[in-house]
């Protein structure tokens, strides 16, 4: 296994992702929008219902579920370009004629989907946590849960 070859596959995929607007949207706009929208929603719920912080906890738990959905949606958008794109553009054939091994290709493709997706969800989670911590909780409990749980969901 030559990690230089693997990284070459990953960096090429990143260069392609940069050109595809739909991937940029999926990676940045979706997590950030959810990260901002949810604290704002809870802020209004609290103001309108005059409820206590404790009563808001189930609402947050429900909203956190959206980050699991996000974890399912983003890789689909990214992987469809990374793997199906190679097949569609018929680039697999010349690639297989290089000294690259199958394992290197598979690892490269896995990383090129895993890395941006995990970063995107972290980004969304950080935005969400900072937003909700400032607005309601003033602690870092959910932040720690997200950082701890996220990688296990992807793997």
């Amino acid at each position: 296994m030559d990690f230089e070859n693997t990284w070459n596959v990953v960096s090429k995929d990143f260069a392609i992702f940069k050109q595809k607007r739909s991937i940029i949207y999926a990676l940045i706009i979706m997590p950030v929008a959810i990260g901002i929208a949810f604290p704002v929603i809870t802020f209004f719920i609290r103001n309108l219902s005059q409820s206590s912080y404790v009563a808001l906890l189930p609402v947050f738990t429900a909203l956190l579920f959206w980050f699991i959905i996000l974890a399912a949606i983003i890789p689909v958008a990214v992987a469809s370009y990374s793997i199906v794109g190679e097949k569609l553009e018929k680039t697999l054939e010349p690639l297989l004629a290089t000294p690259l091994t199958d394992g290197e290709i598979i690892l490269g493709k896995t990383l090129s989907v895993f890395i941006p997706c995990i970063l995107a969800t972290y980004l969304g989670a950080v935005v969400f946590m900072i937003g909700s911590d400032i607005i309601s909780f003033q602690n870092w409990v959910t932040f720690c849960i997200l950082i701890g749980l996220r990688p296990s969901i992807y793997l």
């Binding site: 050109q19 553009e89 010349p94 290089t98």
Partner: peptide, 19 residues
């Protein structure tokens, strides 16, 4: 089988690295 989103230079450079 070229990467259409990449430039001509990038396409060649990508393959050059494998060797």
């Amino acid at each position: 089988g070229l990467y259409e989103a990449l430039s001509a230079y990038q396409n060649l450079d990508y393959y050059g690295r494998f060797y």
